[in-house]
Design a protein around this nucleic acid. Structure first.
Length: 137
RNA sequence: CAGCUGGACCGGACGGUCGCUCGUCGCGAGACGGGAGGAAAGUCCGAACUCCGCAGAGCAGUGUGCCGGAUAACGUCCGGGAGGCCGGGUUCAAGCCCGGCCGACGGAAAGUGCCACAGAAAACAUACCGCCCCGGCCGCAAGGCCGAGGUAAGGGUGAAAAGGUGCGGUAAGAGCGCACCGCCGCCGCAGUAAUGCAGCGGGCAGGGCAAACCCCACACGGAGCAAGACCAAAUAGGGAGGGAGCCUCGGGUUCGCUCGGGGCAGGUGCCGGCUCGGCGCGUCACAACCUCCGGGUAGGUCGCUUGAGCUCCGCAGCAAUGCGUGGCCCAGAGGAAUGACCGUCCUGCGGUAGCAAUACCGCAGACAGAAUUCGGCUUACAGGUCCGGCUGCCAC
RNA sequence: GGCGCGGUACCCAAGUGGUAAGGGAGAGGUCUGCAAAACCUUUAUACGUCGGUUCGAUUCCGACCCGCGCCU
């Protein structure tokens, strides 16, 4: 447990520089075709509670993140919870990667019961890896 | 008070910081407000709505099936009645009475089919063992054997074998006779009806299965919001027109045109500001190319949430429910919002301290997530509240 | 979200209101120097779960559970 995880009364995390971390719809990956392209042409990064696919894109210089939670991972309640926890973790990390990258995160079943701080560390590490491998082509 | 059981309901509360989504306001930054369930689930029924189909009727098919009511409708709900199970009381017994629970329950004297095994016999009933009588033979006798009959009480088989109980009766028996119960027919009374009750007559017709085919009555067109409507890129393809002249003679004509002969003109696309030039095509026809039109994919918009709506009170009704007045607006996403973290409290369990009330610490708080919308059914569900029934214990 | 199919042994798979085929695999044997192939013999185990109808249900009816497909 590093000290920078969560402060007692829920104030902003150091990693989310600049105050309020948001995660609007424009930063989300929503189109079926986009998902397909990332799966087909993208690279992969494996973490404890998830698998991350990512692909450098052309023109619009924005990071976009999408989530896929399949039927095998549980009922609607559990799948919704996984998606919400992931979204919250990505939001709190802050969408600071500047490269035009599409990212798709596939959770594993352990994500449901994992500690939220661990989850945030997984996300942080994954985005660092992405930045390193894609940031300077 | 405890256990079992039937029904109704709640299913954590309040607050803080950050975020998501919809609405309203605002030029904008943003502000304010709304934001999962009783099952949102399974998709098992019924509707609304939309498109397609359709003269009418019938057949086929599917579903429903005691009676009455409720409802937009239903396979749902409410009330009632046959029937079944359990407990208690009563009777010699069958049975009857009381209470509780269950309750897919039309027709088997319209027809067809199926009832394995066992059993003598399983559906125009039969007679294996047995019981009884008569005749003959044997035997001192008890009785035995053979033959002709009577019988459906008893045994045995089976899920099921020509009503049940009791008394009488008989050679033995049998509705053979009687009483009660059951059954069939007729009639009466009560009830809207299912049905119940009473009377009279008949000793008694008759197996089961229709969640087998079927018959009868009633209902039903098919698909589903990924329905459907509108806008509409790129690419490919479709249609129409231009490209694709003028004059004259003759023939045909539905008077729009068309066919044939002769003469004249030299066109058009791209490159380019224009000319020259180059390249391609064309000169009577399926050209290149240009313009327009329609279908339609990706994508977008609508459908999309005010509705057989919720609720207070009053009235009608046993009830389901209906009527009236007033009040309320209560999620609308679309790779799919309703979340993350924290604090205080609540409930349960465990531990520590304490005689105890209690205090502190730790853990836990179910089933489950709207997807066009309603009415039901079914299934899942920690814990808790209220009302009723039965049993046991204690107190009065 | 809506609609439609199917669950029979370890696997494939027929079937019907009373007894559940068959094949492969497995086991044992023959053959062989040893195996494979071939041939012979063979055991045990199964009707997804729970109710209902029926004397009797894998079969008929209903409700659940699981798997698959189509519409985009």
């Amino acid at each position: 447990m590093s000290g920078d995880a969560i402060l007692p009364n829920g104030s902003a995390d150091p990693s989310s520089v600049g105050g309020r971390a948001k995660f609007p719809r424009s930063s989300r990956l929503l189109r079926h075709a986009d998902f397909e392209r990332v799966y087909k042409e993208g690279r992969r990064h494996f973490a404890a509670h998830m698998t991350v696919f990512y692909l450098r894109r052309g023109d619009p210089a924005r990071l976009r993140v999408g989530f896929t939670v399949g039927r095998g991972l549980g009922g609607a309640v559990e799948r919704n919870r996984m998606k919400r926890r992931l979204r919250e973790a990505v939001r709190l990390y802050g969408v600071v990667v500047d490269a035009p990258v599409d990212v798709v995160i596939n959770p594993k079943k352990s994500l449901l019961t994992a500690d939220f701080a661990d989850l945030r560390k997984d996300i942080k590490r994954a985005f660092e890896v992405i930045e390193k491998s894609v940031g300077k082509p």
